[in-house]
């Protein structure tokens, strides 16, 4: 069985979108819970979960 990459591509596209939106928001945000640069590492290096953690806990209202 061959892996059909066209089938899996959307998975990477959505992950990429999550990453991009998290980074855009991170760049614009003013108040962070914890350090700003720590969140950058979390967003980039923990795939999938990182951006979600940032959106949930990273910003102050």
């Amino acid at each position: 069985m061959d892996i059909n990459w066209a089938m899996i591509a959307p998975l990477f596209v959505i992950q990429g979108l999550l990453l991009i939106f998290a980074l855009l928001d991170w760049a614009k945000a003013e108040d962070y819970r914890g350090s700003k640069w720590m969140w950058l590492f979390i967003i980039i290096f923990i795939s999938m979960v990182g951006p979600v953690l940032y959106f949930l806990f990273g910003r102050k209202r």
Partner: peptide, 9 residues
């Protein structure tokens, strides 16, 4: 944006 993306994933 992000909640629907996560649900799709």
């Amino acid at each position: 944006i992000w909640v629907p993306l996560v649900f799709i994933l």
